[in-house]
Design a protein around this nucleic acid. Structure first.
Lengths: 347, 347
DNA sequence: GTTAGCACTCGATCGTAATGAGTGCTAACA
DNA sequence: TGTTAGCACTCATTACGATCGAGTGCTAAC
């Protein structure tokens, strides 16, 4: 079913008005503000058709029209103009983004902050899934005779360390031996793979060192690897929803915060979304609680590989064009910054 | 001004009823539920006196009485019984707390979670201020010819590391030299002290190594030290406020979340509180936004030294006795776990 | 000093009326 | 045949008033 040019223009007018004001839009308003050269009565006839086609709804007889989710979908797919950011805006955003960058984790945390500040919505950032990340280096470092640090470095540059205490003083040679053996055994293997291996037996060593390995090092090595696989979720702009009329209702506000409160579920929802720029509107979201929200996510890349996600969640009435542009700009920027020479030039 | 025994009993009855129900308490209710052996009329007379003395207020003529902040203060100081936790409760709490412990940061994050689950309030945990923490060890570790890791270990066992990229390949001997010099120069000095030093000139080395030091290592060393000084704030149970009648009002809910939204301010507020178990009620809080809340904090110790704080924030109508007991139990537990042999026995 | 009784207060609840934005339909017009 | 003016109709919103009832404060009796 193709809509006539005129119907499309009217629909667009209604959607953009509604996105701005959050109030049902009447025929007279349209005729006055957007000079389409037709009278309110004609617009009413068209509106009536659009309603029949499922693009508009009617909170009650004497109210104006409100776009349906189907209308937003059409809008996002065809009518919406992505707002081209001006040079100044780009500079401003980049400036904010790189105020404070060193590690990817921090960058993403910061990106969420910037995104929520610009869009006035609630934003989130997901750090990369490290399933494919490969171990590069295991090192045990002496601190004092009862304390050592277990350090793990991965291909992607992630470093993780854990201080360990031993009851019995250890020998420095033991640490060196273990570091070498572990690196030899694990180097080049993916983290998730290593978690399934059991190589203790392949290390030849004396009783005491073996004791250190099985009692102190291995348990913590495993725990640390598991943590390295964890994806982190950062959120920002939670309280922004209070300035959105849709959430002037306590139940809705509560419901909204509930979604974000359950970090684990929300993370999974995000992980399961497709890559690239994805917009889901209202009932297109599979999670019950999210069925009156819209979600926009985009994927960023680290070293050219698929990595994490960045996005916003808010009411279905949302400035799709603007918000999408900002998210895309941010993810492009991040992907750029974390190209092969990750971390940029420090010298 | 000393209150008569009977007035105290009536006041206590009103406070505990109000804490339970959040509804103004009438004379008839008191006389029925708490058998004080006196009639509603007599209670009314006493209530009238208590109101004159500032312990009760009156939302409107035909409503029951509500305790004033002054009444809560009296309650907390004299009437309140700290709820002695039962053995089962203690075991349950400890169990929850130690489900998942390794580092202090994680413990505190988890403690906040447990605390909010038990009290149904919003909780927070503050990690230790590291001002007095002393450097023990600086190490530069090779990863590949353009990548190295800067690792810093402090007396308290905190480990921090930062991956660095260099444009020019470095020599391993340079790393060793720098590690040794830096450790030699900084060992035993407090982090905040080191930040004010400038020891680059005291390191004798060749041009290339010096280049590495000044361009790559030092700037990141300083940044990392600054980060090590940062105090972290963890919060949990944010959405709990929605099940508290006081916050069934959108403005109040918004205001409440606003307090916690500004992490920096809130952290400072907490840092400035005295140590030990501290309860501040309503206007006793110096921050405007917090003047209709009550806050309870307690201090935990690491290695026997003053460390961070753990607490809750909620409406002035709060189960002071129970909540205080839980917080104290948690902080005692944590202090215990992080005694001199921090981290417990791993073998 | 305590208590019963009663008038009084005032928030909460419910129904009714007035208001007005906006529609849908009809009939006239280009 | 598409467009428009006119008008009756609908219905959320607001304001108003009546009623209800929980709880007080006062008085007078015990």
């Amino acid at each position: 079913m193709n809509l006539s040019e005129r119907k499309l223009r009217i629909l667009q007018a209604i959607i953009s008005d509604f996105i701005r004001t959050a109030e049902p839009v009447g025929s007279r308003t349209i005729s006055k503000k957007h000079d389409l050269g037709i009278s309110p009565a004609t617009i009413r006839n068209e509106m009536s058709d659009l309603e029949e086609l499922g693009y508009l709804t009617h909170p009650h007889t004497s109210a104006g029209r409100v776009p349906s989710e189907q209308a937003y979908r059409l809008y996002v797919d065809e009518l919406m103009k992505k707002k081209e950011l001006s040079q100044e805006e780009k500079i401003e955003i980049s400036g904010k983004l790189y105020e404070n960058v060193r590690e990817l984790e921090k960058t993403m945390q910061h990106a969420a902050k910037v995104l929520s500040e610009i869009t006035n919505l609630t934003s989130f950032a997901l750090t990369p899934n490290q399933d494919e990340d490969v171990l590069k280096y295991v090192n045990l470092l002496p601190v004092d005779e009862h304390t050592l640090v277990l350090m793990i470095v991965s291909q992607s540059g992630k470093v993780s360390n854990t201080p360990l205490k031993t009851k019995i003083p250890y020998k420095n040679e033991a640490l060196e031996l273990l570091s070498k053996s572990m690196t030899y055994n694990y180097k080049g293997k993916s983290i998730s793979n290593v978690l399934t291996l059991d190589i203790i037996e392949t290390i030849e060593t004396d009783m005491q060192t073996m004791n250190l390995l099985t009692n102190n090092v291995m348990p913590n090595f495993m725990k640390t690897l598991e943590e390295m696989l964890d994806v982190n979720l950062y959120m920002d702009g939670l309280t922004n929803i209070f300035s959105i009329p849709e959430y002037n209702d306590l139940d809705r506000a509560k419901n909204f915060l509930e979604i974000l409160n359950n970090k684990e579920d929300f993370t999974n929802t995000l992980i399961n979304r497709e890559n690239g720029v994805i917009i889901t509107i209202g009932n297109e979201n599979v999670e019950d609680l999210m069925r009156d929200c819209s979600v926009i996510t985009a994927t960023y890349h680290v070293d050219g590989k698929l990595a994490g996600k960045l996005g916003v969640i808010g009411p279905t009435r949302m400035k799709y064009g603007e918000v999408t542009s900002v998210i895309e700009f941010l993810t492009d920027n991040i992907s750029n910054a974390y190209k092969i020479s990750e971390g940029g030039e420090d010298d």
